[in-house]
């Protein structure tokens, strides 16, 4: 007779959640993002570097203040706050005042991670929580995009970065609409080549499609990434935007524009794949990705804002526990649970 072991808990992969590999995985993401960071500095000047450093500093400082003294060393060394700060920084507009960026970093770690009980317990992607907080708090500054500059302006830092705390920034240059803004409000498309290379206006890290894909491939090779999630997002975003495009090609962009504009690539590769806030099972990952792609197209097409990647991912983050619950693989040899 076969001995049953009903008490043995069998779970889907990953069996080992974070703990052991967290710092290494975080390091991999850092490596994958280096080209993106370089591109951000190339297009938007050294100011981009300052912004990134500020969000990271805001996050680290919050982490340090709110962690009990005896746990500080372990928590600070897992690199996750560094990564959260970096990811948040890459989603900010290039002319954002540093004091706002610092606040965003603090909100990302404080409201996005610590308040839930630290890394692994958070329901929402911390970097996106920080960005949502900033967008809700400073809606104008967060949607004022300065145009990409040439290499000649490399050492020019925009004055708006140095606005004093609590003060409204004054912008040097006339703001430029992002490709998505142009599409939504003026029905103007942007050439695909520009979107691929990245010399458009937009958030620091989202403009260059090619480099983002390159980083994604690196992560895939290192197996730090659940390939199903980005694939599902791309497929469903392309499908739904294609349908809309067929209905009304003037108002809605085609699938290629949808994929390469805005922060879709950045969000799909670096944000949605966060292992803490995405479903564990393969089936769950597909549902998660398809949901994100659908919501992106929905928000971009019919929402008040031109971009919807952030809210799409946050909403699906919120649905993750539910998805996990209903897609848990049946334990081999057991009956399907009734009820």
């Amino acid at each position: 007779m076969i001995k049953k072991e009903p008490d043995l808990l069998i779970q889907a992969t990953p069996m080992l959640r974070q703990e052991m590999t967290t710092p290494r995985a975080m390091l991999d993401v850092w490596i994958a993002l280096i080209p993106v960071i370089l591109a951000a500095v190339w297009f938007f000047g050294v100011g981009a570097l300052l912004l990134l450093l500020t969000t990271i500093a805001g996050g680290l400082m919050t982490e340090w203040v709110f962690t009990p003294a005896d746990k500080r060393r372990g928590v600070m060394r897992d690199n996750s706050s560094l990564l959260t700060g970096l990811l948040l920084g890459l989603t900010l507009p290039p002319g954002l005042p540093l004091w706002m960026a610092f606040l965003g970093g603090a909100a990302a770690i404080g409201l996005g991670k610590l308040i839930w009980g630290g890394l692994g317990s958070n329901l929402f992607n911390p970097a996106l929580v920080g960005r949502a907080f900033l967008l809700g708090t400073f809606p104008i500054a967060m949607t004022t995009w300065s145009p990409a500059m040439g290499p000649g302006h490399f050492f020019e830092v925009q004055g708006s970065l140095f606005a004093l705390p609590f003060q409204t920034p004054v912008y040097d240059a006339v703001s430029a609409a992002t490709p998505l803004g142009l599409m939504k409000f003026e029905q103007q498309s942007t050439a695909l080549s520009k979107l691929l290379i990245g010399n458009t206006s937009g958030s620091l890290g989202e403009t260059s499609g090619l480099l983002l894909l390159l980083g994604g491939l690196f992560l895939l090779w290192r197996r730090d990434l659940d390939w199903r999630i980005p694939t599902a997002i791309f497929a469903s975003a392309a499908l739904f935007s294609g349908l809309l495009y067929l209905v009304n090609p003037v108002q809605f962009p085609g699938p290629l524009f949808t994929l390469f504009s805005g922060s879709l690539l950045f969000g799909a590769i670096y944000m949605a794949t966060d292992p803490v806030t995405s479903p564990l099972s393969p089936r769950g990952a597909w549902i998660f990705g398809i949901g994100i792609g659908f919501l992106i197209v929905l928000i971009r097409g019919f929402g008040g804002l031109p971009e919807g990647v952030m809210y799409a991912i946050l909403l699906m983050n919120g649905a993750t526990p539910l998805i996990d619950r209903y897609t848990q693989p049946r334990v081999f040899g057991r009956q399907a649970r009734s009820g």
Binding site: G136, T137, F138, P139, F166, Q167, T168
Partner: peptide
């Protein structure tokens, strides 16, 4: 309290 150039934290007025 802060003069004209104060940048309001819009979210604070809203429910969140």
């Amino acid at each position: 309290l802060f003069g004209d150039t104060f940048e309001p934290w819009v979210i604070m007025i809203l429910p969140p």
